[in-house]
Simulated scan of single mutants.
Amino acid sequence: MSIAVVTGAGSGIGRSVALALAAAGWSVALAGRRAEPLEETAALAPDGDFLCAPTDVTSEAQVAALFSSVRDRYGRVDLLFNNAGTFAGGGTPVEDLDPATWRAVVDVNLTGAFLCAQAAFRAMKEQEPQGGRIINNGSISAHVPRPHSIAYTATKHAMTGLTKSLSLDGRPYRIACGQLDIGNAATDMTARMQAGILQADGRLAPEPVMDAADVAATVVHMAGLPLEANVQFATVMATAMPYIGRG
C-alpha cells in the first residue's frame, strides 16, 4: 500500500490528482483549508481510501498535525503532491499591489510549500524502508510571467529553487523531488482565461485550456516511478496556449 498526501485537494488540480491516485491504488490524505470540499472530493470515489485532514499550510502546527495524522493512520508517507496555492493579487499592477497581499501569496505558495515539504522530508527520512517522493506544483509562471502577476510569479520561480534543494538534500535518504509546471488546466482559477485575459501586448484574448485529468495522469506517472528514477522537471500545458512565444 502506497500513501500520498495531496494539498489543495478540495478542488481543481488537487482534486483531480487525488482521485487519479486513488484510482491507481494509492491511499490519499486530502489536505485543504475547509473540511467540506475535502469530503466532496472523497465522495467522488466511494471505493477510495481517503483521510480528510483540514489544514492551513501556512501554519506550522497544522502541517505537523497533518503529517502526524497520516503516520498514525498509515504508518508512513510515500508521496507529497505539494499543490496548495493562491493567485491573490493577480491582475494588479506592481505599483498598486498591497504588501499584505504580497506576503499572503508568499505565505501560501512558498512558505506553505516549504512547511509541507519539510514535514514530508522528515517522515520519509525517519521511516523504514526509508525514502519517498515530493512533487511540487510549479507553473508556467516558474518560467515566464503573465502581466501583473509579480507575487505569484516570484513564488513560482522560488518553487524551482525549493525543488532543486530538496532533490539534492534528499539523495542520501532515497527522497526524490520533482516539479510539474502546469499551464492552463481547466479549473475555477483559470475560468477567466476562456473569456479573455490580458496578454503581454495589452490585448485581452481567450486562451485554450486542458482537462485537469491530463495533469493528474502526469502526476500518477511521476509518482509511480521507482525511487531510483525521477522526473526532475516536466511541463504539461494546453497545446496551443501562449507559452512558447509568449511576450
Results as ranks from 00 to 15, higher is better:
82 N>K: 07
63 V>W: 03
120 A>Y: 03
120 A>P: 01
73 R>C: 06
93 P>T: 12
79 L>I: 02
99 P>M: 04
96 D>W: 04
114 F>L: 08
34 R>E: 13
51 L>S: 00
36 E>A: 14
89 G>H: 01
42 A>E: 06
3 I>A: 03
15 R>C: 04
25 G>E: 05
36 E>N: 07
80 L>H: 07
90 G>H: 11
42 A>N: 12
112 G>W: 05
115 L>N: 03
79 L>S: 00
71 R>E: 14
70 V>A: 01
3 I>D: 00
96 D>I: 02
66 L>W: 01
69 S>D: 14
96 D>A: 12
44 L>V: 11
26 W>A: 00
21 L>I: 11
27 S>M: 04
49 D>L: 03
53 A>T: 13
1 M>L: 10
42 A>C: 08
117 A>C: 11
14 G>E: 11
45 A>V: 12
74 Y>A: 06
27 S>V: 04
104 A>H: 10
117 A>N: 06
101 T>W: 04
38 L>V: 01
97 L>W: 02
9 A>P: 06
83 N>L: 00
112 G>M: 04
109 N>Q: 05
45 A>S: 15
5 V>Y: 00
91 G>L: 09
92 T>N: 08
19 L>N: 10
55 T>Q: 04
23 A>F: 09
114 F>Q: 00
36 E>V: 11
30 L>F: 05
105 V>P: 03
101 T>C: 14
84 A>Y: 07
13 I>D: 13
111 T>Y: 11
58 T>G: 12
103 R>G: 13
99 P>E: 06
71 R>K: 14
50 F>R: 03
12 G>F: 11
107 D>A: 15
69 S>E: 13
110 L>W: 06
108 V>C: 05
103 R>S: 15
90 G>I: 12
83 N>W: 00
17 V>Q: 07
101 T>D: 08
88 A>E: 13
57 V>T: 11
39 E>T: 13
1 M>V: 11
3 I>N: 00
46 P>W: 09
73 R>G: 03
37 P>C: 06
106 V>M: 10
96 D>H: 12
104 A>I: 03
51 L>W: 00
84 A>I: 10
16 S>Y: 10
89 G>A: 06
106 V>R: 06
12 G>Q: 08
19 L>M: 10
97 L>M: 06
71 R>Q: 14
59 S>E: 08
119 A>Y: 08
20 A>M: 03
118 Q>D: 14
14 G>S: 10
31 A>Y: 06
11 S>C: 09
56 D>F: 13
100 A>E: 15
51 L>T: 01
5 V>M: 01
50 F>A: 02
21 L>A: 04
62 Q>M: 12
103 R>A: 15
96 D>T: 10
119 A>D: 09
65 A>T: 11
81 F>V: 03
12 G>H: 07
61 A>P: 00
8 G>M: 06
51 L>H: 00
115 L>V: 09
107 D>C: 08
53 A>Q: 15
21 L>N: 05
54 P>K: 05
8 G>V: 09
54 P>D: 05
44 L>C: 13
100 A>V: 15
12 G>Y: 10
46 P>T: 11
117 A>I: 09
72 D>E: 14
6 V>H: 01
5 V>Q: 01
69 S>F: 01
33 R>W: 14
49 D>Y: 02
59 S>C: 09
53 A>F: 02
77 V>G: 01
88 A>H: 01
44 L>A: 15
65 A>I: 02
45 A>C: 14
